[in-house]
Design a protein around this nucleic acid. Structure first.
Length: 429
RNA sequence: GCCCAGCUAGUGUAGAGGCCUAUCAUGCAACCCUGUCACGGUUGCGACUCGGAUUCGAAUUCCGAGCUGGGCGCCA
């Protein structure tokens, strides 16, 4: 029976392990093979005078990163990593690795991110990389779990859509038989339709596509979005939910991923239970006072302004009360201040993580706002129709999963937290 | 879309007109080595993105192409 490497203890006795050869050190009469699986490292020690012919032959044949199966007696040894080593009685090459390797898994020689992404399957053998994705899995699990426990329905909506809906971002056109179609930029309109369906609380964790030609460490053309929509809730309700969800994610990682955090050398900066709410007008004032740029009310926040405000706030925070002019048509305006919308962004000091709003649920107001944006309501018929037949008031948000991981682990590039990132130039692997 | 930078062995690099038959590390091969943990030692293998120009001479300067990274804009 194969034993995970982390379960090999000094007193295990006889064991069989399977893993990749991480390093080989040949000292002459004695050689060391460092074996790696997803749980850790184990040193196999071969004393050439004592080892069998077939063990010696296989060991000589084995190259770094080959998959091997080793059976033998485990011995306590304070000279070995982990305080134990295995003395192979059987040494079988299960899958031999060619040489040279496209990149150095043992990290003696660094590789650039581009080389690493081209060879992601090898890159992901590095414990630091594997740790990121173990943590990302934990975040997904914890957040989903929280939603399930609080009465949310997990939905999946179509990523193929007929037309540009929300406006704003560029869409990828695709070939869809004889029709024009696009990859969806957001599940926004579908979530809202499910409010019309009476689902009341829904969430979706799935891909979104943006065809922007940006080239930065915080943008992707395919991203994962954590989306929620809640009926009979306003913007304040869903901001409270968002704080909770971010906290749930951090707490789960702190609780269940300490080994991975240790491998990464990362100390989690735990978020506050509630995030400060900064009205947009005040955010503009802060930015205008800190940076030498012509910033005025009604502008969107530049990267520079975002950073300036972020360093002032120093933690997760909301920017609330945005001018209606720079938020989407589905954001609800305040009854008494129609130029201001009940929209918010949730920020990490380094970048925007989320945006959300209480939505417009009144048909007439929605049509009016679509027109106000210079869009044609006729193009939104599939979306507008549910608003005629009993649409409850509702609110929601979307969080960029990739950015959440990037900021949580303080990664230098958003691509670090995505297995197979899609950016301006990369479509493979 | 705008701007900046880069491209040298499998990987990461040195290189500023002749010192380049191109440095170093890692890797790989062979040999030596019984406690390594970035093992050590000796020898060897392996590269200037492409095209044009300038020059007696170009990895190095110039022009063009290709590819890549990053910043801004836009966007989340």
């Amino acid at each position: 029976m194969r034993l995970p490497i982390s379960e090999v203890k000094p007193d295990t006795g006889t064991a069989t392990v399977i893993g990749w050869i991480h390093e080989i050190r040949d000292l002459g009469g004695l050689s060391f093979y460092i074996l790696r699986d997803r749980t850790g490292f184990l040193q196999a020690t071969i004393v050439k005078k004592k080892a069998g012919e077939d063990v010696l032959a296989a060991a000589k044949e084995a190259s770094r990163e080959s998959v091997v199966k080793i059976s033998g007696v485990v011995k306590e040894s304070d000279k070995a990593p982990g305080g134990r080593e295995i003395i192979p009685e059987k040494f079988e090459i299960i899958s031999k690795a060619e040489t040279p390797l496209p990149l150095d898994v043992s990290e003696k020689v660094p590789a650039e991110i581009d080389t690493r992404l081209d060879n992601r399957y090898l890159d992901a053998r590095r414990p630091k990389v594997a740790a990121i994705f173990r943590i990302r899995s934990e975040v997904t699990h914890a957040i989903s779990d929280y939603f399930y426990k609080n009465g949310f329905i997990n939905i999946t909506t179509s990523k193929i859509v007929a037309a540009a809906t929300e406006g704003g971002t560029e869409l990828f056109p695709i070939a869809y038989f004889e029709k024009e179609a696009f990859l969806n930029q957001s599940p926004q309109l579908y979530k809202q339709m499910m409010m019309g369906a009476g689902f009341e609380k829904v969430f979706e964790i799935g891909p979104i596509f943006r065809a922007e030609e940006h080239n930065t460490t915080k943008h992707l053309n395919e991203a994962t979005s954590i989306d929620v929509e809640v009926s009979f809730a306003d913007h304040n309700d869903v901001m409270a939910l968002l704080e909770k969800v971010i906290n749930v994610a951090y707490e789960a990682v702190a609780e269940n991923c300490q080994p991975q955090l240790d491998i990464l050398g990362t100390k989690l900066q735990m978020p506050s239970k509630t995030f400060p709410k900064l009205p947009y007008a005040d955010a503009i004032d802060i930015a205008a006072g800190k940076i030498d740029e012509d910033i005025k009310y009604g502008d969107d926040l530049s990267s520079n302004a975002e950073r300036a405000i972020g360093s002032e706030m120093g933690e997760h925070y909301f920017i609330t009360d945005w001018p209606r002019s720079i938020k989407p048509f589905y954001a609800m305006p305040y009854e008494d201040r129609p130029d201001i919308s009940k929209a918010f962004d949730m920020m990490h000091p380094k970048m925007e993580l989320s945006s959300g709003a209480q939505r417009v649920h009144q048909y007439d107001l929605l049509v009016e706002q679509i027109k106000l944006k210079g869009l044609n309501p006729d193009n939104f018929e599939f979306y507008l129709k549910p608003f005629k037949y009993g649409m409850p008031p509702h609110a929601g948000w979307g969080v960029g999963m990739d950015r959440l991981i990037t900021t949580m682990l303080d990664l230098p590039n958003i691509r670090e937290g995505v297995l197979f990132p899609r950016d301006r130039h990369r479509v493979t692997p």
